[in-house]
Design a binder for these strands. Structure first.
Lengths: 417, 417
DNA sequence: TGCAGTTTGGCAACAGCGTTGCTTAAGTGG
DNA sequence: CCACTTAAGCAACGCTGTTGCCAAACTGCA
């Protein structure tokens, strides 16, 4: 439950808050007084906090604002390279590894084919290699003491220090499908690969890498990535954490929930079960043994080429979810969605708009969960087949997002999440 | 968003935490070292905090535990009468007012017939009278009710002195149906009574009463009452805040959500929309304009006497909700449920058990949301509280729970919620 | 060019939080 | 009766954000 707080906890809280706002401000930066306004801290407190951040190399000056009649405000900015985190996406048939800096930017990314069924040892072997490649090829002997204290009351260590061009890595976030225990770092089941059931992946990998490791569901990390990314774009985003659902349509149907700006996992990391929501009481049987499940109906429609029908079904589920949780917006992703983005967003939006019309409330907006891999590639490729790309955009599409979010798992506690 | 914290905030946080645990401990009390263990504060910090609480009259000694070889632990207990709050439930056809003490016990309760359609002025007039009656008749035209017991004979003490038998009231919580803005304290719509739309109830009532007022949806306050009550019963409840859904079946179908121990309202206080979840895509039309809504299907089954069918439909909705949010348990209430408690709990439990069987997870337990009015019904009548309505059970059943939760709205911030 | 006015932001002293080290209180057990 | 154990308070302490004050930096008007 809620634990007692002491002075170090207070300090960490405020520091994280300021770091998070610095990050949200992006390249443009924020002034001390703006930070004070946003946090309700006194300007002097902000000065002290930012002084520590600058001393630790996490923040730096970034010019000044125009004067409003007096001394112009000094703008502060995050030093993106001051800290990094690695994100791993363990998908069924491939492994994506990304290196993310403190600002949340993906600095480097790699995807290799890898069968999850090859077993934990092989996967960890490959993962270790990918992490080593991203972090600068220093072996597993580097900092063995690191351990798994991520999240708790660890000291906020200075990142810079004596060593010059290093890329300090704070930890590794791992995303994988299926039910798992986020707190224990143990997958429960990975459909099709029973040898993963109950394997203590988090601890085993932490021992191997000598780095803190965090494990989470793929849909949760995707939602986290979107939550943190969304904050940068919007102007007053910092004042309004936001609640949204990320709906992923791929091999199955899953959801990642962000409530009040934080990923909601539930007591057993089982929240976001979306595919087997009943939307047709006497519907056709589903692989799960039930009837009328969202996943069965939606994917069946996709299979018979009825994209509009699939979108309508998905929209019904989204409307149920949006109503129940009073969500701000719905984001769609996954390879099925990216295969026909417009059809899905418009179809889902239509259902939500229809329900909003009846209730008199404004409609819940729907958007595509933009993936960094897509954004860089092309903007106006609306209905591409995606098969002609050797890198497999519509695969890496969610892979990138999920791996990016996995890395954010490590950074999030630093940023007040 | 998350605000900065300073030393007073830190102190408040820890004090609230301790107060909440003292309350959860009930009559038996807790020792300082147990509090230290539960909060992760040092024993000395707990000593300081409890010393302040005792000095303020909020806590007191309550004997000692058996020795384990050394000095026995001193047990501390909340002083229930140290603070009170009033809860008002504005239902469509009646108004229930309760006085709740710091321990969460309903000290006094009154229900009067009142048409919400009579308008805001009339309702506030009646509410003011009821509040005055509960807080000690210092309002205008206090309509005192007959044989008021429980509290020691002397009412209306004029020479109370400094800390006499007064009942300090911290504020008034108001619960009402329909969509409303919890933060602004303004109802959006009350179906059937358009004159309430947008009326600034919270502020108007606060002005009238000279007390802080909080407004919330009826299902939310019911959920809050259950959340706080549940904590008393269970042993390790304090360590596990719990997530549950309260499903209310009355005139309509609503839900109150408690996630991680706190009521989840969503950005617009609209969370918990449950009646118009689609569970049958091509189902019969609903009054809302949609098709296959949970509420339409469930209430239609009730209307035709098919309680089992209604329970199955409700169970499907509950299963969707439980899966999506990874809920610990489901609680049922409302006059339709209390009319056939066993049929509903068993019917819903059966659906949840079936789905759990398929997924391999343990089933989500279902229980009746117990209402104080049920438990205290005998006591109330035997002491002749002057409650002239003997049909109370299935009306006041939820009325009490909801009003109790409304009062808890006021106390919750003190207790770390 | 000079000076008043305005705004930013650091320095220093401060009140108050939980923590630490130690002492006193109040039991058990040989 | 005395050693031992456990609980809880007292006093000093480190550290937090806060407050009061002053230097720095820029605008605008004379």
């Amino acid at each position: 439950m809620g634990l007692g707080a002491n002075l170090p906890a207070l300090r960490n809280h405020n520091t994280a808050l300021v770091l998070g706002l610095l990050r949200a401000a992006g390249e443009e930066g924020v002034s001390r007084l703006e930070l004070a306004g946003l946090t309700a801290l006194t300007p002097q407190a902000v000065s002290k906090i930012t002084a520590r951040l600058r001393a630790d190399g996490l923040a730096e000056d970034a010019g000044r604002r125009a004067s409003t009649g007096g001394k112009p405000r000094t703008v502060l900015r995050l030093v993106p390279g001051a800290a990094h985190a690695v994100g791993l996406h363990l998908d069924r048939d491939e492994l994506t590894a990304v290196l993310v800096d403190l600002a949340g930017t993906v600095v480097e990314a790699n995807t290799v084919a890898l069968d999850l069924g090859a077993g934990a040892e092989v996967v960890m072997e490959v993962a270790e290699g990918e992490v080593a490649a991203l972090t600068g090829a220093r072996g597993s002997g580097a900092r063995r003491d690191g351990g798994r204290d991520a999240g708790g009351g660890g000291d906020r260590r200075s990142a810079g220090g004596s060593s010059g061009g290093r890329r300090p890595v704070l930890g590794v976030g791992v995303a994988m499908p299926g039910p798992l225990d986020h707190l224990a770092g143990v997958p429960h089941r990975v459909t099709g690969f029973p040898e993963w059931n109950g394997f203590p992946l988090r601890d085993a990998l932490a021992d191997r890498l000598g780095l803190p490791v965090v494990l989470d569901k793929d849909t949760n990390t995707a939602a986290l990535a979107l939550a943190l990314r969304g904050r940068e774009g919007e102007a007053g985003a910092a004042a309004h954490p936001g609640s949204f659902a990320y709906l992923h349509v791929g091999t199955g149907l899953g959801a990642g929930l962000v409530l009040d700006g934080a990923v909601y996992r539930g007591p057993r990391t089982a929240a976001g079960e979306f595919g087997h929501q009943t939307v047709q009481l006497d519907g056709p049987p589903c692989g799960c043994g039930g009837r009328g499940c969202l996943e069965a109906l939606c994917l069946a429609a996709v299979a018979r080429g009825d994209t509009a029908g699939a979108a309508r079904v998905l929209g019904a589920g989204a409307a149920n979810l949006a109503g129940l949780l009073d969500i701000d917006r719905v984001l769609l992703g996954g390879r099925v969605v990216t295969a026909a983005p417009a059809a899905f967003t418009e179809g889902v939006a239509a259902v939500l708009a229809e329900r909003a019309r009846r209730s008199g409330e404004p409609a819940v907006p729907v958007a595509l969960a933009e993936d960094p891999a897509d954004a860089d590639a092309d903007a106006d490729r609306s209905t591409g087949t995606g098969d002609d790309r050797s890198t497999g955009t519509d695969r890496a599409a969610s892979g990138h997002l999920i791996a990016e979010g996995a890395a954010q798992l490590v950074l999030a506690p630093l940023l007040g999440r």
